[in-house]
Amino acid sequence: MSIAPFRIAVVIPCYKVGERALEVIAGIGPECWRIYAVDDACPTKSGRLIAEHCTDPRVRVLYHPQNLGVGGAVMTGYRQALEDGAQIVVKLDGDGQLDPALLPLFCAPLIDGTADYAKGNRFYDPDGLHGMPAVRLLGNAALSFFSKLSTGYWDLFDPTNGYTAIRAEVLSKLPLDKISQRYFFESDMLFRLNTLRAVVVDIPMAARYGDEVSNLRIGAVIGEFLGKHLRNFAKRVVYNYFLRDMSLASLELLSGIGLLGFGTAFGVYRWHESAEAGLATPAGTVMLAALPVMLGLQFLLAFFGYDIATVPRRPRTARLREAEPPAPG
């Protein structure tokens, strides 16, 4: 499928990337319409380096007066791409870990109407993981599980992958000022996309690691990410299952939490009471505590089964086109 008629923009956040950003720009093919290099108050002046040494007429360098983080840099590029009339916006990192030659693969599902947002997945082919450091491998696996929980996209993996592409129609509906400005922004994007019921697909890709130094430390952020994932999960459940709509799954969730909480609290209280008295807990009391716990777990499993089954499958861009009035005769 040809992608030439589409105005495809590429956003590259630049912070301590130096000449590697020039190599990334040089690798972007002619299918790209415009390139935005966002200097996020880089102390090594990456933006100035690009402006002075890059002769590609598609490149525009945007500058931040103060550092906002990688997410803030991407949002700046997104806003400028929307203002300039881009139809698809791709995000690439400036450190060279992401292959610009894969850009058509990321744009294809957006162009053919099967997805609203595409992201990379470095875990799809196990043979391609040999170059990934072990700490990153384990950290990404843990973050992927929590991301499934908070975003509702149970069929996706590798949430911190920085290679993404999004349709402008969907991007324009996102609250860009509310999306996390630091490293959590990719996961936060997925959470926001789920509230729009946008279709997201994984694009298999190989991990590339050279001599670049990543600014992301998985061990340092995993606690922060966990808290934010739990927050987004609570917000998503309240919005999708109690404000936007109520269903049998809503009742299953409430029943599961209530029964599990009652059974656990009652069991702990009676166990402590029996221990203080030096007596064995009666079998009937044990069952009275265990039964609500088992029923609560069953209700919660039923809720998550429903949640997994309702991952968005119909692209938002297709729904928007159907809602448009027909062109005058």
Rank of each mutant, 00 (worst) to 15 (best):
1 M>W: 06
2 S>K: 14
5 P>H: 06
7 R>E: 11
11 V>N: 05
11 V>P: 07
16 K>H: 09
19 E>A: 12
21 A>G: 08
23 E>T: 07
23 E>H: 01
24 V>I: 09
25 I>H: 08
30 P>N: 13
31 E>S: 12
34 R>E: 15
36 Y>R: 05
37 A>V: 11
38 V>F: 03
42 C>E: 00
42 C>S: 15
46 S>D: 15
48 R>L: 12
48 R>H: 08
51 A>V: 01
52 E>P: 00
53 H>M: 09
55 T>P: 01
55 T>A: 13
58 R>L: 04
62 L>A: 03
66 Q>A: 15
71 G>A: 08
71 G>L: 06
72 G>F: 02
72 G>L: 04
73 A>I: 05
73 A>H: 05
74 V>P: 00
80 Q>S: 14
84 D>F: 06
84 D>R: 01
87 Q>T: 10
90 V>W: 10
91 K>S: 01
91 K>M: 09
92 L>V: 12
100 P>C: 14
101 A>E: 12
103 L>Q: 08
104 P>T: 11
108 A>G: 10
111 I>T: 12
112 D>C: 01
113 G>W: 06
113 G>L: 07
116 D>N: 07
117 Y>E: 00
117 Y>T: 02
119 K>T: 06
119 K>E: 05
121 N>E: 11
122 R>Q: 12
125 D>F: 15
128 G>P: 11
129 L>N: 09
130 H>C: 10
130 H>D: 10
137 L>D: 10
140 N>S: 04
142 A>M: 05
144 S>Y: 03
147 S>T: 07
150 S>D: 00
151 T>Q: 00
154 W>V: 00
155 D>V: 05
156 L>V: 02
156 L>S: 04
156 L>Y: 01
157 F>I: 00
157 F>S: 06
163 Y>V: 08
167 R>W: 01
173 K>C: 09
175 P>V: 06
185 F>I: 05
185 F>G: 02
185 F>A: 03
186 E>Y: 04
188 D>C: 10
193 L>D: 01
196 L>P: 05
196 L>H: 03
197 R>D: 10
197 R>H: 07
205 M>E: 05
206 A>D: 03
209 Y>D: 03
220 A>C: 05
221 V>I: 09
228 K>G: 02
229 H>I: 00
229 H>K: 00
232 N>H: 08
236 R>V: 02
237 V>Y: 07
241 Y>K: 14
245 D>F: 10
248 L>A: 14
250 S>A: 09
254 L>S: 09
254 L>F: 10
255 S>Y: 11
255 S>C: 14
257 I>Q: 08
258 G>W: 13
259 L>G: 14
259 L>S: 09
263 G>W: 04
264 T>P: 05
267 G>H: 05
267 G>R: 04
270 R>P: 10
277 A>W: 04
277 A>D: 12
278 G>S: 02
283 A>R: 14
284 G>R: 08
285 T>K: 02
286 V>D: 12
289 A>E: 12
289 A>N: 11
291 L>H: 09
292 P>T: 15
294 M>L: 15
295 L>Q: 15
295 L>Y: 14
300 L>Y: 11
301 L>M: 13
302 A>D: 15
305 G>E: 12
305 G>K: 02
307 D>G: 01
307 D>E: 14
309 A>D: 07
313 R>F: 03
315 P>Q: 03
317 T>G: 08
317 T>I: 14
324 E>C: 07
325 P>E: 04
327 A>P: 06
329 G>W: 03
329 G>N: 09
